[in-house]
Design a protein around this nucleic acid. Structure first.
Lengths: 222, 222
DNA sequence: CCCTTTTGTCACCTATTTGTCACGTCCCCG
DNA sequence: CGGGGACGTGACAAATAGGTGACAAAAGGG
């Protein structure tokens, strides 16, 4: 978050932190550039009006450096006419928010932008022999035949795949798949593993039981 | 490519053609305007210094005509100070390249601009079997019969189509279709899906429910 | 200002999903 | 070789998600 007015800075960071985001601040362009290079944030909130070096200039410089060039930038600006100017210049800002903005709206925009980013960036397609898993399409095939999985089964499978090779204890799986519904019996995991195995058929060999510890996904079969 | 110096014209067109671009030329503003209207190119390279009518004037006129107003324009200019002038006048040039420029750099800019364009403009006309959707005309037909959709329904449909195949959670849909009105019940999405399905009739089979996750548009039916 | 259309919510219902339990089986260990 | 714990399995009841009809609030349009 880059702004020269402490009030705005406080308001925004307060709301961002409340929403669960880690936040760093800068009060002028030079500081912004320095920090951006050193910590490479996931997103930059940039006020257009800054002392000495204005937001557009900062934006341009951020885009020039390969280290910071792909970081999404959300511009904050006071007047609609300025937005037109930014848009016309296409300096690489990803989004623009006119002042005054509601903190809630800003947080939502930040959230959306970050999700879009991870959604497009993250690898969503996995293939292991006859087994193919496309996370964002929510699609699983074995030998090119579509397999219908329920939401929980799908989540369980993708989580194991994401941590392929690493054994996951039942408690870990409950935490990560079921999300803090810790009152659930650990044997529930077993049942879901069974259902997964049934549905996956021949591809079930990738699901490995480690007795006394938990389960894991075997990316490479021996 | 608009320039009054044959040497520059040749150099640039040679390099553009080499890079695989179709190229037309004009030596003055009047010719540029005429050709632009008749062939509506994907991009215009415009020299600032032209006989009689200068580049800025051409730029302004291109922007005034709806037929040419959305064509990206890259301005070529001799002096840095002139760039400031262009920026200051906000004439709608999309980019500016100072002379002298390396042909390679110019080609790269052209390439980048065209890519950005196709990326952002995207396809506005979609057809899936009996279902046809024209986003920019706000028109939906099933079996060549026009279907009347409300604004929200249309937005929902086009969003799903744009991300065809990828499952969208109710929250995502609320964010992207309803835009920041998070106080809305997620079940609202279900209701709108129902209405969409009713109206689409036979084409409703493209709208797929993924239980426990959300909805998606099936581009390819099995 | 009134009428129509659109939009968000609610309650009900059903099919599916899901958590649990009891029992069987296998493996590890002494 | 036998016991005990860990895991697989079948069945089942409870919970849940999503479809559906109805309705009132909100938005538009004349």
């Amino acid at each position: 978050m880059v702004d020269d007015e402490p009030d705005v800075l406080d308001l925004v960071t307060y709301n961002l932190v409340l929403a669960g985001f880690q936040t760093e601040t800068a009060v002028d362009g030079a500081e912004a550039l320095r920090k951006a290079r050193s910590i490479t944030p996931d997103l930059i909130l940039l006020d257009l009006m800054l002392p000495e070096m204005d937001g557009l200039e900062v934006c341009k410089l951020l885009r020039r450096d390969t280290k910071t060039s792909s970081i999404p930038i959300i511009m904050l600006t006071a007047r609609a006419s300025e937005i037109d100017r930014i848009v016309g210049l296409e300096l690489g800002a990803t989004d623009y928010v006119p002042k005054p903005f509601s903190p809630r709206e800003l947080v939502l925009r930040v959230k959306r932008r970050l999700e879009q980013n991870t959604a497009t960036q993250a690898k969503t397609c996995h293939a292991f022999g006859p087994l193919q898993v496309d996370v964002s399409r929510h699609l699983v095939t074995v030998k090119n035949k579509r397999i219908e999985l329920t939401a929980t089964e799908f989540k369980l499978l993708t989580l194991l795949i994401q941590r392929a090779g690493h054994v996951q204890s039942r408690d870990q799986l409950l935490r990560d798949v079921w999300e803090y519904e810790t009152h659930i019996d650990t044997r529930t995991v077993d049942t879901h593993m069974r259902r997964l195995r049934e549905k996956l058929g021949p591809a079930a060999r990738y699901l490995d039981t480690v007795r006394g510890v938990g389960y894991r996904f075997l990316a490479a079969l021996n």
